[in-house]
């Protein structure tokens, strides 16, 4: 693993913005680093919408918000001195917004997707934001950050609160 290859997993939250800012401050103009901004798509659940059209609208709106966030995050890193070429951006799409919703209520694990990208890309550093959930919330909803902390191997994990 190359510790100078940094995977920053974001979700357009304030915590994610802080994680991006922190990464920018830490790396700045230091040469040799590569920063990969990753968003893993999790569509709103289809079952909570009355029809496909309203679900698709919500998906498209969310996608636009995320793409705006990713553009701002790149700008934030560049403002801290990170070279444009040292930054890559990935909106990992599930594709279902165009092909239609998954007909189940299970969803998929964002954390597992991030860990897969981390393994395949040989990232030595993973950066995530955390908003600080209660034990009860973690039981009911799970936590992407906690899963990454527990399961990421051969890397350093930066958790930015």
């Amino acid at each position: 693993m190359n510790f100078k290859k940094i995977l920053v997993a974001v979700d357009a939250s304030e915590n994610s913005a802080r994680a991006v800012e922190y990464t920018g401050i830490m790396i700045g103009q230091t040469p040799g680093f590569q920063i990969h901004l990753l968003y893993v798509e999790r569509h709103p659940e289809r079952d909570i919408f009355p029809d496909d059209a309203s679900w698709k609208n919500a998906c498209q709106e969310e996608e636009q918000n995320i793409r705006d966030f990713l553009a701002q995050a790149r700008g934030m890193l560049e403002n801290k001195g990170v070279q444009h070429e040292a930054i890559s951006v990935d909106y990992a799409s599930s594709g279902s917004c165009s092909t239609g919703p998954q007909r189940s209520s299970k969803g998929h694990s964002v954390a597992n997707h991030i860990l897969k990208v981390h393994q395949e890309g040989g990232y030595g550093t993973v950066v995530v934001g955390r908003r600080g959930v209660s034990k009860a919330e973690e039981f009911l909803f799970g936590s992407v950050t906690t899963k990454i902390i527990h399961n990421a191997k051969d890397c350093t994990v930066w958790v930015v609160e």
Partner: peptide, 14 residues
């Protein structure tokens, strides 16, 4: 039905 979360079966387990 609920919003999807990282732990989709947490509420059922609870």
């Amino acid at each position: 039905a609920y919003e999807s979360t990282e732990n989709p079966f947490g509420l059922d387990l609870f």
